[in-house]
Amino acid sequence: MSWIGRLRAIVTDLRIGASFTTILPFGSPKTMDDGALTRTSWSFPIAGLLVGLVGSTVYAIAQTLGLAPSPAAMLALASTVIVTGALHEDGLADTADGLGGGPTRERKLEIMRDSRIGTYGVCALLISLVLRWSALTAIATPRSIAIALLLAHAAARAGLPIFMALVPPARTDGLSAGAGRPAGPNAAIALGLGAMVLVVGFGPGKAILAVILLAFIGLMTAWLAIKQIGGQTGDILGTFEQLGETAILLMAAVLLYPGMPS
């Protein structure tokens, strides 16, 4: 393949990855097929950077207009939820309802497919939103907010391909089962991109701590999913992203908080 062909393939992958993970107007390329999602999964961290960029831009505009850090942080958080179509928040809510309210594996999976939200789902969303909002409020400064959002959204999505590759689907149908398992190189590229972003934002030493934290979250999420429903689903993937995003924002609140010594 010529370098022009390779470049076109990369652009196509980026468009598919962004169109799946966000509602941004990239359009659906004509080359979209059953294996497109796993083939383009390496681009998930880049799509995360786009989401983080939207949130940080909204925060900067809100601050310029004179809003205090608290409402500005809420607007930034709301913009990231809107631009992703609440895709991962929906997964978190469904997972909380299913794993919390289903007595059997079959019932848990049935609840997770139900579009209605229950008490467990509401509580999970509230906890996630409040933790992320409070972390952004604590960071406060536009530059640090931008770093935190870019890191959180890129790093949280960087582990999705390897999670999909290593944890078997819980169903024979559905989004996760239909997507298949990403190839090793795609998962490795996504991990490498996520690690690179963390190193740039946190520095090498603290980036290692962030990677360990995300790996622990991934292991615990995988263990719980396998134990409760026999594997992963699209909702489980959304939950993994939400847990990772929240963890990185909280870590950023500690490391980037204006009052913390450098």
Score class of each variant (00 low, 15 high):
residue 29 P to C: 09
residue 207 A to Q: 11
residue 8 R to D: 13
residue 48 G to A: 01
residue 113 R to I: 02
residue 244 G to H: 02
residue 217 I to C: 04
residue 144 S to Q: 15
residue 83 V to C: 03
residue 51 V to N: 02
residue 111 I to S: 10
residue 49 L to A: 05
residue 168 P to R: 09
residue 151 L to N: 08
residue 95 T to F: 04
residue 40 T to D: 12
residue 48 G to Q: 02
residue 93 A to S: 13
residue 175 L to F: 13
residue 217 I to S: 08
residue 195 A to Q: 05
residue 18 A to D: 11
residue 104 T to N: 06
residue 255 L to W: 15
residue 114 D to L: 12
residue 85 G to A: 10
residue 218 G to L: 08
residue 214 L to D: 01
residue 216 F to R: 05
residue 75 L to A: 09
residue 91 G to T: 03
residue 152 A to T: 05
residue 20 F to T: 06
residue 72 A to G: 09
residue 213 L to A: 15
residue 229 I to S: 05
residue 73 A to V: 00
residue 207 A to F: 07
residue 136 L to Q: 05
residue 213 L to K: 14
residue 14 L to F: 13
residue 6 R to M: 13
residue 156 A to V: 08
residue 159 G to V: 04
residue 92 L to T: 11
residue 132 R to L: 00
residue 41 S to L: 08
residue 170 A to H: 03
residue 142 P to I: 02
residue 118 G to Q: 09
residue 227 K to D: 15
residue 6 R to N: 11
residue 67 L to W: 11
residue 15 R to N: 11
residue 248 I to L: 08
residue 94 D to L: 08
residue 165 A to Y: 06
residue 160 L to K: 05
residue 16 I to C: 10
residue 122 V to G: 02
residue 135 A to R: 05
residue 245 E to A: 04
residue 67 L to V: 05
residue 254 V to L: 08
residue 115 S to A: 07
residue 43 S to L: 07
residue 239 T to E: 09
residue 53 L to M: 07
residue 78 A to Y: 06
residue 14 L to A: 02
residue 118 G to S: 09
residue 235 D to F: 02
residue 28 S to A: 14
residue 33 D to K: 11
residue 117 I to Q: 12
residue 51 V to A: 06
residue 52 G to N: 01
residue 206 K to S: 14
residue 164 M to T: 00
residue 254 V to H: 04
residue 153 H to T: 06
residue 213 L to P: 01
residue 201 G to C: 04
residue 202 F to S: 15
residue 194 G to N: 01
residue 257 Y to D: 04
residue 63 Q to V: 15
residue 204 P to F: 14
residue 17 G to Y: 13
residue 253 A to L: 14
residue 184 G to N: 11
residue 84 T to K: 09
residue 36 A to D: 07
residue 48 G to D: 00
residue 45 P to I: 00
residue 219 L to D: 14
residue 147 I to N: 03
